[in-house]
């Protein structure tokens, strides 16, 4: 089974995204913050990570940086809200598959996730 990690500090996002992807025979993990995300990534080696940019504890960009430092070459899609150009450039430099801008509907996300997991 493909493994998907959803990193978001909003509990509703974690809960309903997990429900949704579970129904698609995907093994879903969730993390509410950067530290937890790093732990799960190193243990579970997910096939795809959906990473929220703006989080309380450590930012998505910081998580990405630490991932790359630890040589964890996991596929990452950034979920961004109202971020500025600079943040986007920084993330690109660290190597991400792409961006999805909030708010978006689950069907869009489904397409992206399925495309990435099947490739």
């Amino acid at each position: 089974m493909a493994k998907l990690l959803i990193v978001d500090d909003e509990s509703d996002i974690r809960e309903f995204a997990r429900n949704f992807f579970k129904k698609r025979k995907i093994d879903v993990f969730v993390a509410s913050g950067g530290r937890q995300a790093l732990e799960i990534i190193s243990q579970e080696k997910p096939d795809l990570v959906l990473l929220d940019v703006r989080m309380e504890e450590i930012t998505g960009i910081e998580v990405l940086r630490q991932l790359r430092q630890a040589n964890l070459n996991v596929k990452v899609v950034m979920v961004s809200g109202v971020e500025d150009e600079e943040t986007i450039k920084e993330a690109n430099a660290l190597g991400v598959l792409g961006y999805i801008h909030k708010p978006f509907i689950l069907e869009e996300l489904e397409k992206i996730v399925l495309a990435q997991l099947n490739s």
Partner: peptide
């Protein structure tokens, strides 16, 4: 404004996920 739009956007985002999953069910 930055913090506000982030928070309001997050509400919409969450609403989208909740409705999306419910419709899917």
């Amino acid at each position: 404004a930055d913090g506000l739009s982030h928070q309001i956007n997050n509400r919409f985002h969450a609403l989208g996920f909740i409705a999306g999953d419910a419709l899917d069910t």
